[in-house]
């Protein structure tokens, strides 16, 4: 379908809630992403990783959704990181300023070891 090209999965590893965003992040992604965030927050998760996979389209509406998540992460005293972004979207995250609030890592493993140093535990 033209509209809906995102699958969201939640996993837990080493005390980190990993939200896999598989596909494109546009206006159609809002409920799925917010729903996943609410779910891990209700569980009491403090360390959250947004892991982008098979992603070649994040648009301004997607950026607005992610800023919404960062707003809540800051209010709730959680820690957010992102991984799996292409160089282009890493650049856009830096331009927009998202990178100041969500550390960018190349891979899930890199992000998990950084969270470990911050005190995430198994």
């Amino acid at each position: 379908m033209l509209e809906d090209e995102l699958t969201v999965n939640i996993r837990h590893r080493d005390g980190v809630a990993i939200i896999d965003l598989i596909g494109d992040v546009t206006t159609f992604a809002e409920e799925k992403i917010n729903g996943a965030y609410r779910q891990v927050t209700a569980r009491g998760d403090r360390f959250i990783l947004l892991n982008f996979r098979q992603n070649d389209y994040i648009n301004s509406a997607g950026i607005a959704i992610l800023i919404g998540i960062v707003t809540e992460v800051n209010q709730n005293g959680q820690k957010l990181a992102v991984s799996g972004l292409s160089p282009h979207f890493q650049k856009i995250f830096r331009m927009v300023g998202l990178a100041q609030y969500a550390e960018i890592y190349q891979t899930e493993e890199d992000a998990l070891s950084a969270f470990r140093r911050l005190g995430a535990v198994e």
Partner: peptide, 12 residues
């Protein structure tokens, strides 16, 4: 982005 945190609409 700092302004967007304060707004209901985070777009634009």
């Amino acid at each position: 982005i700092a302004d967007a945190f304060q707004r209901a609409d985070k777009g634009g």
